[in-house]
Write a protein that binds this DNA or RNA. Structure first.
Length: 637
DNA sequence: ACGCGATGCGCC
DNA sequence: AAAGGGCGCATCGCGT
C-alpha cells in the first residue's frame, strides 16, 4: 500500500525553485492516523512534519514530479533530508511521470502518440497530460493552483471546498495513475535509479550557476562588434533585412550563382531515389528545380565557405554570431543577477538526460562563452569527466553478451584505442606512434572517428561526413578500408551488430533492446538507435548513479569532505562541482573516487577513469595543475 | 498574432 | 543489405 503525496506552495520564481510550503495532500493511506482515503495537512499543522517524516521513514510514496516536492520538503524541514534520502536509497520514492516515460520507452511510443486519424503528434508528460491519456479526464489547471499562497495564513476550516478538493485531487489522480502503471511493473525496474538521479539533478538546478558580469559584457561587446562588421554589406547584398533577420531564400539564390551544390539533409532523404537524376540535370533544369525547391539548397556554414563567395562567407559568419547574441548571451546576462537554474529531463530516449532553459549541455564552444560561468565567492569549480565513457560501456556490453571484447582488452592494458587503430592505419607499431608527427596525429584522428562512429552502426557514406566534421578528410574508398580495419581490429563488432539485428521485432522494420544491468527496455526504435542505446544508455546509467552518490554525500554525510558542497552542472560524462578553494584538492579526490566507483559498477570488466580539474571559471581549455606535493591547484588560464 | 514544421547547428 | 543518436534552440516561412 502506497501513499500519493502532493504539495501546494508559493509560486516558483527565478532564484527559488523550492518555494515555501502551503500544504501537503495525500491519497491512499495516512500512517499517522492509520486512515484510508485522502486528506490535507497545512504547513502550520503541528502534525504535518511528523506525517511526512513517517511516510519517508517506512513507506512507499508516489509523486508527480517527485524532485520538486522533495526539494520543497527539504527547504521547509532540513532535518528531514536524511530520511528523504533514506527513502530514495531504498527505492521507496515513486514518480508517475518517470514511470510513464519508462513505459512509453518500452512500448516505443516515447514522446509521440497517434490521433484517431493516425497522425503522429508530440506527447507530453505533465500530470495533466498523463491524466488525460490514462484516466480520460481533464484536470482543472489553474482555478486554484496559482493562488495557494493567499491561503498560507488561513485556517484549513475556512478554505473553500474547491481549494481543498483541488489540492487533494492531484494526489488522488496520481495514486490512480500509479495503480494503473503497476500492471506493467516489469518495465519499471529502473524507476528508483531514475528518481534518485532526477532528485540530484533538481537539487543542482535549485542551487544554480552564476555568471560573471564583466565576462558577459566583454563577450557581448565582441560579438556586437563582429556583427556590425558584416551586417552593412549583407543588407546591401539583400541577404539580411533591415531588421536584422536573414533572407534565406536570397541566400539560396546567391548560392545558385556559385558552383557549389550542397543539398540539405532533408533533400538527401527525400531525393535519395532521384539523386542521380539531379546530378545529371543541366544548369537550366537545376536552376528551375532549385527555384521550386529553394529550401533544398543548403546555405549552412560549410557550403558558404566552400563557395568562396565573400558575401556568403559573411552570411554564415553573421548567422553564427546572431544566434550567439540572441541566444546564449541573453541567458548569460540573466545569470549575472540570479544564478542560472536550468531544468534537467531525467530520461530521454537513449537513457541520457536532457537540459533546457538554458541547455548547459550544448553551450557554444566559442571562446568566452563557458568562461562566463563562475563559482560563488571563495569557491572554485571542480570539473571531473570520464575518459572515453562510451567506449568502455560498449566494451562492457560485448563482455556481457559475448564474453569477449578486443577493444576492452586493449583499454584494460592501458592502450589508447584511437592511437592503436591509427597505428594500423599508417602500418606502424603502436609503440612507435609519435603524436608530434603530423602523419601519426592525423592517423590517430581517423582512429578516433572510427571508434566513435562505427560503434553506433555508422555506414561508409555517413562516416565520410562524420569524419569530416572531426577534421578528417577521407574518400569513400578510404572510409570503406577503415571500416573493414575497425571491424577486424575489434572483432566483437560482428557479434554486436548481429546481436542487434536479432533484436528486430518480427514483421516490422523496428527493433527492441533490453538495456543491460538495469531493467529498462527501448522498444520499436530504428536499427541505429538500437545500436546506440545499449552503450549510450549504460554510460548514462553509470554517470547518473555517480551523481546521486555525490549528492547523497553532499546533503546527508557530515563526515564526507563533499558535505555542503554543491553540483553546478552535468554534461553527460562530466560533473561540475562548486567547492571552497582551501579544500579543493581533497574534494576533487573524493569526487573522482565516487565517480569512478559508481560508474565502474556498471562496467566492472572494463573500468574507466575520471579526471578532475580545478578552475576559477568554466573552460574547455583548463588543464590539471598540481603543486610540488602533487596536490591539485586551480588552473589560472 | 500565433502555432508549427523544417532546417541548421551547437554539444556529448 | 544497410543503417550514428539524441538532445535544445534560433530562425524562417507558411498556415490558421
Amino acid at each position: 500500500m502506497t501513499t500519493a503525496l502532493d504539495t501546494e506552495t508559493f509560486l516558483i520564481y527565478p532564484g527559488n525553485l523550492a518555494p515555501d510550503l502551503v500544504c501537503v495532500s495525500w491519497a491512499g493511506y495516512d500512517s499517522l492516523n492509520d486512515e484510508q482515503g485522502s486528506g490535507l495537512y497545512k504547513h502550520d499543522d503541528e502534525y504535518a512534519k511528523r506525517f511526512v517524516s513517517l511516510e519517508f521513514e517506512h513507506r512507499h510514496t508516489v509523486f508527480a514530479n517527485a524532485p520538486f516536492d522533495l526539494a520543497v520538503f527539504m527547504a521547509k524541514w532540513p532535518e528531514l533530508i536524511p530520511v528523504i534520502f533514506k527513502a530514495l536509497d531504498e527505492g521507496r520514492v515513486h514518480d508517475v511521470q518517470t514511470r510513464e516515460k519508462l513505459l512509453d520507452l518500452a512500448r516505443g511510443t516515447f514522446r509521440f502518440e497517434e490521433d484517431e486519424d493516425g497522425n503522429v503528434k508530440a506527447k507530453g508528460y505533465s500530470l495533466f497530460d498523463i491524466t488525460r491519456r490514462r484516466l480520460g479526464k481533464m484536470l482543472d489547471k489553474d482555478t486554484y493552483r496559482l493562488n495557494y499562497h493567499d491561503r498560507y495564513d488561513v485556517p484549513l476550516k475556512d478554505w473553500p471546498e474547491g481549494a481543498r478538493h483541488y489540492a487533494i485531487s492531484d494526489a488522488v489522480v496520481t495514486l490512480e495513475i500509479f495503480e494503473q502503471q503497476e500492471k506493467l511493473k516489469q518495465y519499471l525496474g529502473n524507476e528508483a535509479a531514475q528518481v534518485r538521479a532526477h532528485t540530484m539533478l533538481h537539487l543542482m538546478s535549485c542551487h544554480g550557476f552564476k555568471t560573471d558580469p564583466a565576462a558577459v559584457k566583454q563577450l557581448k561587446e565582441r560579438v556586437v562588434r563582429d556583427i556590425d562588421e558584416v551586417k552593412g554589406d549583407l543588407i546591401e547584398a539583400g541577404l539580411v533585412r533591415k531588421d536584422g533577420s536573414r533572407d534565406t531564400k536570397a541566400a539560396v539564390r546567391r548560392m545558385m550563382d556559385t558552383s557549389v551544390r550542397v543539398w540539405t539533409d532533408a533533400a538527401e532523404k527525400i531525393l535519395s531515389g532521384t539523386h542521380d537524376k539531379i546530378e545529371q540535370m543541366n544548369p537550366q533544369e537545376l536552376a528551375e528545380y532549385a527555384d521550386e525547391k529553394g529550401k533544398y539548397i543548403s546555405v549552412a556554414e560549410e557550403p558558404c565557405i566552400m563557395s568562396g563567395d565573400k558575401t556568403l562567407i559573411a552570411y554564415s559568419r553573421y548567422s553564427k554570431l546572431q544566434s550567439l547574441l540572441t541566444g546564449s548571451i541573453k541567458d548569460l546576462e540573466t545569470g549575472c543577477t540570479i544564478p542560472i537554474q536550468p531544468r534537467y529531463e531525467v530520461i530521454q530516449a537513449t537513457g541520457r538526460t536532457g537540459c533546457s532553459g538554458p541547455n548547459l549541455q550544448n553551450l557554444r564552444r566559442a571562446p568566452g562563452v563557458r568562461e562566463c560561468f563562475v563559482p560563488r565567492d571563495g569557491k572554485v569549480i571542480i570539473a571531473c569527466d570520464y575518459q572515453a565513457a562510451e567506449l568502455h560501456t560498449w566494451a562492457q556490453v560485448c563482455y556481457d553478451l559475448f564474453g569477449k571484447s578486443k577493444l576492452g582488452d586493449a583499454m584494460n592494458k592501458g592502450i589508447d584505442p584511437h592511437t592503436w587503430l591509427g597505428a594500423r592505419v599508417v602500418k606502424t607499431d603502436y609503440v612507435d606512434m609519435d603524436l608530434d608527427n603530423p602523419l601519426h596525429k592525423a592517423a590517430r584522428n581517423v582512429g578516433k572517428a572510427a571508434n566513435f562512429g562505427f560503434i553506433g552502426g555508422c555506414g561508409v557514406p555517413r562516416f565520410v561526413a562524420l569524419a569530416h566534421g572531426w577534421g578528417c578528410d577521407i574518400t569513400e574508398q578510404e572510409a570503406a578500408l577503415y571500416k573493414d580495419l575497425w571491424m577486424r581490429s575489434w572483432d566483437e563488432a560482428e557479434d554486436y551488430f548481429k546481436f542487434i539485428r536479432d533484436c528486430q521485432i518480427k514483421g516490422t522494420k523496428f527493433f527492441a533492446v533490453d538495456q543491460l544491468r538495469v531493467q529498462r527496455v527501448r522498444g520499436r526504435c530504428t536499427y541505429t538507435s538500437a545500436c546506440n542505446s545499449l552503450f549510450q544508455g549504460l554510460a548514462a546509467d553509470g554517470a547518473k548513479a555517480a551523481g546521486y552518490e555525490i549528492a547523497r554525500r553532499q546533503y546527508t554525510q557530515p563526515d564526507s569532505i563533499l558535505y555542503g558542497t554543491r553540483l553546478l552542472a552535468f554534461v553527460h560524462d562530466e560533473y561540475l562541482l562548486e567547492a571552497p578553494e582551501e579544500r579543493a584538492h581533497e574534494i576533487a579526490m573524493e569526487m573522482q573516487t565516487v565517480m569512478e566507483d559508481e560508474f565502474n559498477r556498471f562496467v566492472p570488466d572494463c573500468p574507466t577513469h575520471a579526471e578532475p580539474t580545478i578552475m576559477r571559471r568554466w573552460s574547455k581549455k583548463a588543464k590539471q595543475v598540481r603543486d610540488d606535493e602533487g596536490r591539485l591547484m586551480p588552473w589560472e588560464g
